[in-house]
C-alpha cells in the first residue's frame, strides 16, 4: 500500500475529542518537517477556554499550526485547526469556510461537518483519521469519507483514553487501518 505513489491526497483530515490533544501533539511532534500535505484538524474544545490549544500544539509541532480565517486556502505542510466556536468546512476549491450555525452533536466545531464537507470536496483524495473521544461526533462524517473512497484510519480503541468516538465509527464501516498514535505517525510519514 505504501508503494502506491500514484495516490495524491489533497488533505489529511483528523478529528478527535477527549484525550486527543496528547495524541495530536504526539503526531505533530514526530511528523516529517517536510510533510507535503495539508493537515486539517477538528478538535472539540471547551468553549470558554479560548487560548492554550493552538499555542500548545505550536510548541510541539514540526509544522506551522494555523487557526484559519474564513475563505483561507489550505496549503501543503501546514496544519489547520478549527477555531473555537466555529464550524469548519472544506470546500472544493481547497478553501476553508467558517460558520457559526447551530451546534451539531452538541459541538461547535463539529467533526462531522468537517469530514462531510472534506469527503464531498476531495472524495478519494483524502485521508480521514478519527481519534479518541467521548461522543459520536465524526462517525457519520468518517463513514462519508469511506463511502466516497477516501482512505480511513481509526485510532485503535485499545490505545484511546475514551473509546466512544472510534467505536462509533467502527460500528458504521470497516476502516482501511486501525492504528496506534505511533502507527498513525508512521503512516503519515510514509506518504
Amino acid at each position: 500500500m505504501q508503494q502506491n505513489t500514484a495516490v495524491k491526497y489533497k488533505a489529511i483530515v483528523m478529528g478527535g475529542s477527549a484525550g486527543s490533544f496528547s495524541v495530536v501533539s504526539k503526531i505533530l511532534s514526530n511528523i516529517n518537517p517536510d510533510f507535503k500535505y495539508p493537515i486539517v484538524i477538528c478538535m472539540h474544545r471547551l468553549k470558554h477556554i479560548r487560548s492554550g490549544l493552538v499555542e500548545g500544539l505550536r510548541l510541539k509541532s514540526n509544522l506551522p499550526v494555523i487557526e484559519p480565517f474564513d475563505k483561507e486556502n489550505i496549503e501543503g505542510g501546514k496544519v489547520y485547526l478549527a477555531p473555537s466556536n466555529y464550524h469548519m468546512f472544506i470546500e472544493i476549491d481547497a478553501t476553508i469556510s467558517l460558520s457559526t450555525e447551530e451546534v451539531y452533536n452538541h459541538s461547535r466545531p463539529s467533526i462531522d461537518h468537517t469530514f462531510m464537507s472534506a469527503a464531498t470536496s476531495f472524495r478519494e483524495k483524502m485521508v480521514g483519521i478519527i481519534l479518541t473521544g467521548a461522543n459520536k461526533d465524526g462517525a457519520m462524517g468518517m463513514r462519508e469519507v469511506h463511502v466516497r473512497n477516501g482512505y480511513t484510519i481509526i485510532q485503535d480503541p485499545a490505545t484511546c483514553d475514551v473509546q466512544t468516538m472510534p467505536n462509533a465509527s467502527l460500528q458504521l464501516f470497516k476502516p482501511n487501518k486501525l492504528l496506534s498514535p505511533q502507527g498513525i505517525t508512521d503512516f503519515l510519514n510514509s506518504l
Binding site: P68, F69, D70, K71, P83, N85, L98
Partner: peptide
C-alpha cells in the same frame, strides 16, 4: 467583525 472573519 467576528474573531475569524476578515476583509477581502
Amino acid at each position: 467583525l467576528g474573531s475569524h472573519e476578515g476583509l477581502h
